[in-house]
Amino acid sequence: MFYIHCPYCNERRSEEEFHAKGQAHLMRPANPEEASDREWGDYLFFRDNPRGLHQEMWVHAAGCRKFFNILRNTVSYEILETYPMGEQSSVLAEMTAGRERGEPRRAAGAVA
């Protein structure tokens, strides 16, 4: 059972109000007419399926009905961050920056 913070309502609500909508930050081929079968197949059907951190889209179906993004661990089910559409995960950016500085991985974000 999740409690999810909706970045638009700015409230922490129970999972029943939300629906999971799959991987976030998918880019539709910029030139659909010129996209090959392979590019279309990849865009339509092939998804990241990580055992660990995953960026997903959810919708606040029984609330504001807006879509937003979640950074979640698919093993521990911990939700690290929710952020509005059009933005990038600040937690993920900070972890990448931390790794570049040579800091050890944050325990919560570690891939199990």
Binding site: M1, E15, E16, A20, N49, H54, E56, R72, T74, V75
Partner: peptide
């Protein structure tokens, strides 16, 4: 299924 991706061998109560 539970609609979200998960490897935890557990799902949600709803």
């Amino acid at each position: 299924i539970d609609a979200y991706n998960g490897y935890g061998q557990r799902g949600s109560y709803p």
